[in-house]
Design a protein around this nucleic acid. Sequence first.
DNA 1: AGTCCACAGGAAGGGCAGGCGA
DNA 2: TCGCCTGCCCTTCCTGTGGACT
Length: 408
Amino acid sequence: MTQNIVQQKISMVFKSAIDKKSIFKNKRVLDISYIPDNILHRDSELYEISKILSVSLKNERPSNVFVYGPTGTGKTLVVDYVCNELLSVARENKLSVHYVYVNAKLKRIADTEYRLVSHIANELGEHIPFTGLPTDVVYSRFLNKVESLNGVLIIVIDEIDYLVNKIGDRFLYTLTRINQDLYNTKVSIIGISNNLNFTEYLDARVRSSLSEEEVVFSPYNAIQLRDILEDRSKKAFYEGVVENSVINKCAAIAAQENGDARKALDLLRVSAEIAERNNEYKVKEYHVDLAQKKIDYDRFIEVVKTLAQHQKLTLFAVLDLLLSKDVGFKVHTGDVYDKYVSLCNRIKKTPITQRRISDIINELDILGIINAKIKNLGRYGRTREVSLANSKDVYEKIYNLLKNDLYL
DNA sequence: AGTCCACAGGAAGGGCAGGCGA
DNA sequence: TCGCCTGCCCTTCCTGTGGACT
């Protein structure tokens, strides 16, 4: 095909994208970050959190709140909604109430104590460099900024369990004690977590002050998910685009996966995108099946792409050992390391130590890319048994992707 | 009961890069 | 420009683990 014909084809694709009628009226409604006017099936949680935070309008410190529940149960949405409502009431009445949201799982935000404090301070308008200052200087600039607010500050830390895992609970201890060092500002913390048991690992003092109040979010059932999807799809699509059976199917699949509304919305959105790409004006059940496969695969590929080179080499070594074998076959850390070293030699790269590769295998397991279980083999030592966590066809695609990427 | 294996994983520290303030 | 600080990735050294084997 000549270059000219390719260009013509590309221009046709873009032109038809403009001419083609979209099935979406407002796609953003299906986005997880979208805050709807009415939050369904979370009345008691909305009320409970509002009640706790309402004292800030009298310039009193609200209790710290620990919010927990499985993924996609509306925790962040509800907290964000209540805080925004609170801010607008405070603004109307010219009260000094402030709110900072931190998602600890976002890279380069809460990886270290320094980054977390500087992030919160930056959100409050105090510019602190990305790196370079001693931590105590960052703390004191943060404290000065908080003090200058002269009111109530609510700090929401989403995925707080991840934060504690990463940097320990020292920072939480400092935060929960911060009011002792402040005269003009009262600080309240809302911690959000998927992990119900994570407070067990906290220092007892941190645990008790963080959990002054607890709000539990239970999973949505299929009927509640259907209501949510129906509500959103009315706003997201033109009439008649989505069949009822599609909504029911998305709701049923998400209900099986721990009542995750995020998953349900993703499924609906991706199903519609697939239909639209195939020039179909109606979203049907088989689009949902395709969407489910696509979501799983995309998530996997995205994670693999972000890996560092030695992580990619380790993963490649695992795949090289396992793909030719039967499903369920397992290899040990030592086998993976030997393979990894031979791959390094092939591309003339200095291998890193087995100690580090052991950590990398653990990291790949945490990311859900492979399964790695510690196994005692008696006289034959203690090692990790590494196996595949997904279907072989997905790994074959990843294998080829890595092969090109690593020039193997 | 004692030994052995093949690591797991904690602790300490090195080297480098990025960024800041003086 | 220089000294200082932090983050990140890695190494080295070390102790711990627990079931098979002797």
